[in-house]
Design a protein around this nucleic acid. Structure first.
Lengths: 358, 358
DNA sequence: CTGTTAGCGCGTTCAC
DNA sequence: GTGAACGCGCTAACAG
């Protein structure tokens, strides 16, 4: 008696493995084995079964399969939003690699809200995903670390592997994999690029104190200044979020002060760069003629506006996350792991040598 | 005997409803009822149970729940890719609305390959998703329609609702919901905008014959030309795909012919517009001073390049898809449904009145 | 090589 | 208000 809420129609009930077995005149075990393909079987029975499968248009019930002990064959990814290019590219990598391993992708967004993150991880836990991948910039305080450790253990107990993407590792006693990219190195390279062109006053746009990605980038910026013997003027470090609008606002506010006291801009990401660029143009300042600029991420806006930026391997980040999680499956390995992906500068047309105002 | 491939550790086996029942000193039925919350129960037992749940950090097994007849509480979405802003925004809408209905989102990408689409829909069928949402521009030939009808019936039999997003409806006998936006109307408005500024030679960049979205848009373009009494020069309709690079290539090739024989450009989408714009600049042609341009979609590149374009409610598309699918759940309604979402022009700064070359 | 059987964890009848 | 028992569809032992 199917409980489907159909309109009382004959409702050709979904075919089960039993129907296939009956149609083929064999037992359900035989059908199961033949479909799994990991067991020897007589070609004749095989043909009969496959024909029945085709005729009934049978597909296995994923839930029944997952329940009976096999893996759920799903990878879960949790991120702030899908429309941000940053997350979208990581998600694409995850999705690609998951498909490559014949797995489906569960996706959940949090809008950056810890409560929704908690709720989402809970749902993922119910789903028994092979891996749960958390993506995104975050404040790595004790509170956060405690929360992640909880997730890690809970997921581990449920048979899932927690993976942190673009977030710092948690320590050797927490069963989580961390995959990051080198923010400090990339920022160092980008800043050096500006410094070597003679720029001394470089505006850092979009620092978010506490956020690990931001801290990594600004550290690279400061290191480079130090290496070039340029003193670090804190007034050049502007705090703000990572959106395009914020880039616009920050630059607007800065320009309202009067003639720019900087010759170059290091935008914390490409979106900020795009916003700042717009603000500059509204003040008749052109890039790179009047002001030089570098961004970070090498995502869509960058190419459109000819921005020299730091390329971050977002898709590879996602692929690596899945690969690592699946590699240790069945291995019994449950400790911590940490991978750091490299970055490199992409030179376009937003930087010119500084004009010596001797 | 848990079959988890653990490293032989004590491996605190995932808590089941039985464990909770034991800890609370009640039966599993009581636990089930209290957690579902749709049944009267003594406050005392309730407290005991909830405490046990908290202590064991119990979460229900989604597969067992789905198997035992309840809904799977998931919405599936199938699209070409996640990194395209178009799909990303629709996906965001789907994801938002799904979360709003307390559902998780399964996602699959096809890269536009029908075989992968087939495989993905199959997987979704195994998952028993409440709805399976197919997104994206497509050639609506008989072959396609037959394939969709098959999907629709197979999914319907499995208890899932097929939803077509940005694709034409299939006919009243096919159990599918279609949600589209008005391509022809938007293109008509955009073209009229150019025509009313005196442009007569408008280059249409990126027509893909057969693709429904493209056919809709070029129809609007042609209708507007006709309405303004401008003859339709087929040489102005350039065929191409919808990527940025293609926009660049198409414009490059056109400009190689010599002085432009057009004063305005209608790009089939914003990405094409961005590419074409770059090509124009390389030939020292500026927008809007030398050439006017409109795009379509109103997605990220548009704002960055100050493009006048047609706003398409992508997120609303996704939200509507989920809402409609869930609305008819249990209704027994299994017929076809069709919704058309409106569009409107967003004026920025890429259009100037045409120069009369009298 | 194939059939029989016992769970997987949960919702849900029935009785009490 | 609560407990016992059955079945969802499938996989994996164990026989034959």
């Amino acid at each position: 008696m199917p409980r489907r809420a159909d309109a009382g129609e004959p409702a050709t009930r979904r075919a089960t493995i039993r129907d296939v077995a009956a149609a083929a005149g064999v037992s359900i075990a035989t059908v199961s084995r033949i479909l799994a393909g990991n067991y020897p079987s007589a070609p004749a029975t095989r043909t009969k079964v496959m024909r029945a499968v085709r005729e009934l248009d049978y597909v296995a019930n994923a839930h029944a399969r997952a329940l009976s002990g096999a893996t759920s064959k799903t990878i879960a990814i949790v991120l702030n939003s899908v429309i941000s290019p940053y997350y979208a590219h990581v998600a694409q990598g995850v999705q690609t690699q998951a498909a490559h391993h014949d797995r489906l992708c569960l996706i959940g967004t949090t809008g950056g809200d810890p409560d929704r993150e908690l709720a989402t991880v809970r749902l993922m836990r119910e789903e028994h995903a092979d891996a749960v991948i958390l993506v995104g910039n975050v404040v790595a305080n004790d509170d956060y670390r405690a929360r992640m450790a909880e997730y890690a253990h809970a997921l581990s107990a449920a048979g899932s592997q927690l993976v942190l993407c673009g977030r710092p590792p948690l320590g050797r006693d927490v069963p989580a994999i961390a995959v990051e990219f080198d923010n400090t190195g990339g920022a160092y390279a980008a800043t050096s690029h500006l410094l070597s062109q003679g720029h001394q006053r470089i505006l850092y746009l979009g620092h978010r104190p506490g956020y690990t990605t931001s801290e990594g980038r600004i550290a690279g910026y400061r290191n480079a200044l130090a290496a070039f013997g340029v003193s670090n003027d804190l007034d050049l470090e502007v705090e703000g979020t990572l959106e395009r609008n914020e880039g616009y606002r920050m630059m607007k506010r800065r320009l309202a002060r009067g003639t720019p006291d900087f010759t170059a801009v290091f935008a914390a990401n490409d979106q900020i760069a795009a916003g700042a660029r717009q603000a500059l143009r509204e003040h008749d300042l052109r890039i790179p003629d009047d002001i030089s600029m570098v961004g970070y991420d090498d995502l869509p806006p960058a190419e459109d506006i000819g921005l020299t930026t730091v390329h971050v391997p977002h898709e590879e980040l996602g692929r690596t996350a899945v690969r690592l999680a699946l590699e240790r499956e069945g291995t019994g390995a449950t400790g911590a792991a940490h991978v750091m992906l490299g970055t490199h500068i992409v030179v376009r047309d937003s930087v010119r040598p500084a004009v010596r105002k001797a």
